[in-house]
């Protein structure tokens, strides 16, 4: 990836819902191909899941612990032009709202999934592009919506 690549941030939630892992790897591949330098932020478990899934680092680039990442956003040390936040819980939504506030100029896509996705999405009142589905195990519908949002649909 060239040093002048556009920066993107994937803000990952707790890894307990399986679709997150698949969609994170999918977005890493797609965004890299689109010319983004992508950083993943998450708790240690979610970052280890990604590292183990990609031993030859075809997809994963820099990864940072999520609280450190929020600190870097607050201090202006990290200013991605695109942020994709994953939320399947109140905590995920809270991290997403924080990142949105700290990145007012960025394009901000919020992926809301899991059994409570619809109720959770209603609580996301901050400006963002929402992709919502009650998916837990099957990422197909979310992937299709992501393709539409980023104009990747064939």
């Amino acid at each position: 990836m060239s040093s002048d690549a556009r920066e993107a941030l994937l803000l990952l939630g707790c890894p307990e819902v399986p679709v997150q892992q698949a969609l994170a790897l999918y977005l890493l591949g797609r965004l890299r191909a689109a010319g983004y330098a992508v950083t993943c932020a998450g708790n240690p478990a979610v970052l280890q899941l990604l590292r183990v899934s990609d031993p030859d680092r075809h997809y994963i680039g820099p990864a940072v612990e999520i609280e450190r990442c929020i600190g870097e956003l607050a201090e202006g040390k990290r200013t991605p032009e695109l942020c994709v936040a994953f939320a399947h819980s109140d905590a995920g939504l809270t991290f997403g709202a924080t990142a949105r506030y700290l990145l007012p100029e960025a394009r901000f896509v919020l992926l809301v999934f899991g059994r409570e996705a619809e109720a959770l999405a209603e609580q996301a009142t901050f400006p963002c592009e929402k992709v919502v589905d009650v998916a837990v195990h099957n990422p197909t519908k979310l992937k299709r919506r992501i393709d539409e949002v980023f104009a990747w649909a064939a």
């Binding site: 939630g13 707790c14 307990e16 998450g42 708790n43 478990a45 979610v46 999520i66 609280e67 929020i70 600190g71 607050a74 905590a91 995920g92 939504l93 809270t94 991290f95 709202a97 924080t98 506030y101 901050f126």
Partner: peptide, 25 residues
């Protein structure tokens, strides 16, 4: 750096600070 949906309410009772603390899981 505090995590939260604005407005984030912080309470005070004397010298006691009451505040939210969010962990992803």
């Amino acid at each position: 750096h505090i995590i939260g949906v604005p407005p984030i309410a912080i309470g005070l009772d004397g010298d006691v600070v009451i505040f939210p603390f969010t962990k992803p899981c």
